[in-house]
């Protein structure tokens, strides 16, 4: 479709060129060689070629270069190429379920080792160390529980506000329904749906279509 549109544009240009207003541009020649000109443009082009040896030579030169490029000696892939790729795929390090377990265990042991190391370096006894570790776990758990309870309270508050808001909207709409006749409701709801749909999907996509 695109080619056809631009082909028409070139059609008028090539016609003028065929009347002797100037020779072709490289783009015209490449589009001619690509068979990307419409019938009128092509006829105009060939008409000019019949009368202009310089343009004929320019076309022939570019045609030969394209042919030579297409005939370049192909680079050969070794016969075992795909096998070599598959071997590399097989050799890639993969982490299995046991690998993940080992990784997790190592991380946990490292964490314990760091905690123990910190206490040992601080010069405390084993009893103090155990008590300290216990205290650390308990305080962490307490802090976590406190954070969780506060988060739950905030969620409860938000839900409460949302419920009140819905109630207020419902009361307002009920009041309006008693006053406004039903056809106005239907029109308003349709308009609202259209506005929301176009906002979400994008007006441009609906009117112009998605560019491929």
């Amino acid at each position: 479709m695109n080619g056809k549109r631009s082909g028409s544009r070139d059609g008028s240009r090539s016609e003028s060129q065929a009347k002797g207003e100037g020779c072709f541009k490289a783009e015209d020649i490449y589009r001619y060689l690509d068979d990307d000109l419409d019938r009128g443009a092509r006829e105009g082009f060939e008409g000019h070629l019949g009368a202009c040896p310089a343009c004929r030579r320019a076309v022939e030169e570019r045609r030969l270069i394209a042919r030579a490029a297409a005939d370049l000696v192909p680079l050969e892939v070794p016969p075992d190429f795909s096998r070599r790729v598959l071997v590399r795929i097989e050799d890639r390090p993969r982490v299995s379920v046991f690998g993940w377990l080992a990784l997790g265990s190592t991380a946990f042991v490292s964490l314990v080792a760091v905690v123990v190391g910190v206490f040992v370096l601080s010069g405390k006894s084993l009893a103090q160390l155990v008590a300290g570790f216990e205290g650390l776990v308990v305080s962490t758990f307490k802090s976590g529980a406190l954070l969780f309870s506060k988060a739950a309270a905030v969620v409860g508050l938000v839900l409460n506000v949302f419920t009140h808001l819905l109630n207020a909207i419902w009361s307002g709409l009920s009041g309006l329904a008693a006053v406004v006749p039903w056809p106005v409701w239907v029109v308003s709801l349709t308009l609202l749906t259209i506005i929301i749909t176009t906002s979400i999907l994008g007006l441009r996509k609906i009117l112009v279509g998605v560019r491929s």
Binding site: C23, C52, A54, A58, E60, A68, D71, L72
Partner: peptide
């Protein structure tokens, strides 16, 4: 967009396609 017709000798004149390749 350049004009291509000129009086210079052709770059492919007298060349076989294989040589040009």
């Amino acid at each position: 967009g350049i004009q291509v017709a000129d009086d210079k000798p052709s770059v492919v004149k007298g060349l076989e396609v294989s040589e040009l390749g």
